[in-house]
């Protein structure tokens, strides 16, 4: 960065630095009792926390909150079970055939891919010319 040339620019820069500096300094000044080396008259710090209590309060409770929130976020998808994700190149579910040959619910799907041989099939499709289209994603 170029150094300020005009006096106005220099003042603006100094003001900006002062504002930023005070932002950092004010909380530290307010927290000055925390840095006290000598006790004031009448203060009562009480007994210190044990290691176990410190871990419980400063690690245990945040971890518990984290777990609860994570659970709340994940619960719906866990309840819903496996779901389709594109570009995963795997498919876990048994075939379903809606409006299939016999069943409305696709129970016949397992025997769907047995039967007519491919040769018969191509002969058939050439003779009858079904239409259609395909797509990938």
């Amino acid at each position: 960065m170029k150094p300020p040339t005009t006096p106005e620019a220099r003042t603006r820069r100094a003001l900006r630095a002062a504002a930023l500096g005070s932002l950092a300094a004010v909380p530290l000044l307010l927290a000055s009792p925390a840095f006290a080396l000598h006790r004031d008259a009448g203060d009562d710090p009480g007994p210190g926390m044990s290691a176990v209590a410190t871990i419980l309060v400063y690690i245990g409770i945040p971890a518990a909150i984290f777990c609860v929130i994570a659970l709340l976020v994940l619960a719906p998808s866990i309840a819903r079970g496996n779901r389709y994700r594109p570009h995963q190149l795997s498919w876990w579910a048994a075939p379903v055939w809606f409006g299939g040959p016999r069943d409305e619910r696709g129970d016949t799907a397992d025997r769907a891919l047995t039967g007519t041989s491919l040769k018969e099939l191509t002969a058939y499709s050439e003779a009858q010319t079904e239409g259609g289209a395909s797509a990938r994603w």
Binding site: V96, W97, G99, A109, L113, T116, L121, Y124
Partner: peptide, 26 residues
């Protein structure tokens, strides 16, 4: 018209298998 939807992994050429499935329809 009659509509039918098959969802599942298909082995081999998809077009040929789809025509085969189509032939099985009533």
């Amino acid at each position: 018209l009659k509509f039918s939807v098959y969802v599942g992994s298909v082995e081999g050429d998809l077009h040929a298998q789809a025509v085969r499935l189509h032939r099985q329809l009533a």
